[in-house]
């Protein structure tokens, strides 16, 4: 197996919600252009970990974050760089699709417009390009002016993925992106992740074991705010070392 570069390095990350210690001493090296799956039952801090990565934790005054998250040699938690530039390096996909209150076209064009690219011709081309990348172009090309909320949930989620790609991120952060979708739409999203992984580093949060098995290259297993075990997918699934992992894989733990 070829050696992989590290895209994100998390050192001693601790997060507190008020007095509650939600993430304890997290250390992960997320490999570049692979799918890293953060696995664990609900409430174990997976989503919080994801939000630390693009500092959406800043929005909530009761959350305190300590430690280091190093991307491209820079600690983004203590960076002087503009927060909007840091966030632009990462596309975010949340549990439920939240299309912006605009039409389909503008949902894609939004990220481009706010970064100053306003030429109509350029926008048209890029919108088509991204919609094709997520296999949505054929379905929506005649109704680009319709509100994005008129799409089905699965289509909306794909649209949200494309929206995240428009700002040319290096990283895709996905928070249980298929939990609200039907199996067909879920498969479509998983396929997309597999296709996109040659260009993007993906960090995916899920509690579905089967999904993790299908797409993970690297797995981080969390339980109550702590990392129990992490490692390459083959090793993790075939030869788990910790008891907690074994019972989770065996489906006996919740």
């Amino acid at each position: 197996m070829k050696a992989t570069e590290t895209e994100i390095k998390i050192n001693n990350l601790n997060v507190f919600h008020g007095n509650h210690h939600t993430l304890k001493n997290i250390n992960i090296e997320i490999p570049k252009q692979k799918i890293t799956v953060i696995l664990g039952s609900s409430g174990c801090g997976k989503t919080t970990l994801l939000k630390c990565l693009n500092r959406l934790t800043d929005l909530y005054s009761n959350i305190k974050v300590k430690g280091e998250i190093i991307i491209n040699g820079e600690d983004i938690l203590h960076s002087k760089e503009d927060i909007t530039d840091i966030r632009r390096k990462m596309g975010l996909l949340s549990q439920m699709p939240y299309p912006l209150p605009m039409n389909i076209y503008n949902n894609i064009a939004y990220g481009l417009k706010i970064s100053g690219r306003n030429k109509k011709k350029y926008l048209n081309k890029r919108v088509e390009y991204y919609l094709k990348q997520i296999n949505l172009w054929e379905e929506v090309k005649d109704r680009l002016k319709d509100p994005a909320s008129s799409l089905s949930l699965g289509q909306q989620q794909r649209l949200c993925l494309a929206r995240g790609l428009t700002v040319d991120p290096d990283i895709i952060l996905a928070d249980e992106p298929t939990s609200a979708l039907d199996p067909v739409s879920s498969n479509a999203i998983e396929e997309l992740f597999l296709n996109l992984k040659q260009h993007y580093t993906t960090v995916l949060v899920t509690h579905t074991l089967r999904q993790a098995k299908r797409i993970a290259d690297y797995v981080v297993f969390m339980y109550l705010g702590e990392i129990i075990e992490q490692g390459p997918a083959d090793e993790f699934f075939n030869n788990p070392k910790m008891d907690k992992t074994k019972s989770y894989l065996g489906g006996t733990s919740n």
């Binding site: 596309g91 912006l100 970064s115 995240g164």
Partner: peptide, 12 residues
């Protein structure tokens, strides 16, 4: 909140 997060994560 997620709507706001979506927009912010696009660099707005």
């Amino acid at each position: 909140d997620e709507l706001q997060e979506a927009s912010l994560s696009l660099g707005a």
